[in-house]
Amino acid sequence: MAEKTTTPSKKPTFLFINKESEPLFSKKNRVLLTDPLDDNNPITVQVLGICSALAITVQLKPAVVMSLSVVAVMGASNVIISLLRNLIPNRIRIIVQLVVVASMVILVDQILRAYAYDVSKQLSIFIGLIITNCIVMGRLEAFALGNGVWKSFLDGIGNAAGYGFILIVVAFFRELFGSGKLFGFQVIPDIIYDMGYENNGLMLLSPMALITVGVFIWIQRARNRKLIEKN
């Protein structure tokens, strides 16, 4: 065994209370939370999780519930994997991650079925498909396995929020222009329809989600010069 004398920087970490560490919301920790919202957004920058972004953004309500579910799943599974990170045998770590994510997803699914039955029917298979959402596994493998519990929690929440943010923006435009409604309530007044306006049925189809995400990426890059690749 190598010498493991307790140097000040190697104090034992109990849960997320790290004795000599930084404050809970230090600048570094805040970046974990805010970075995925813009500079490192899982959808628009890393282009992960596109599949579900297309599928459930026809209306705002399922998009919001899906975002919350992903926040819950990612926060919880990041915390669990981070807690276990020194116990997980390296050779089966992917399996362990899958099991953790899958059980979190089943928990969310069961709870929705008991307390939000209509929404769970609407989301049906997409809740199950959170398991295959690359963002979740990606963050477990890339972050939670190597970082402390609190940081992993922030990272999970941040990335899920980044994903959810795009979902909600896309759903907002698709529901508004596709059916003239928001959260199921009509917002475009009848008088405009009388004047000859029609809902754009194309917005309800998946390709328009891709185009909306594309437009979002365009705007984001025009604003945020850091994202532009240098050849």
């Binding site: 116990l87 997980i88 045998p89 390296n90 050779r91 089966i92 399996i95 362990v96 099991v99 953790v100 059980s103 089943i106 928990l107 069961q110 709870i111």
Partner: peptide
Amino acid sequence: RDSNGYTFLFAASMVLVVASTLAFTA
């Protein structure tokens, strides 16, 4: 952590914990 015995032990206890949690919730 890389021995076979540990890997089996870990997998077995993980399955137990997960199964009982999910069964309880369901």
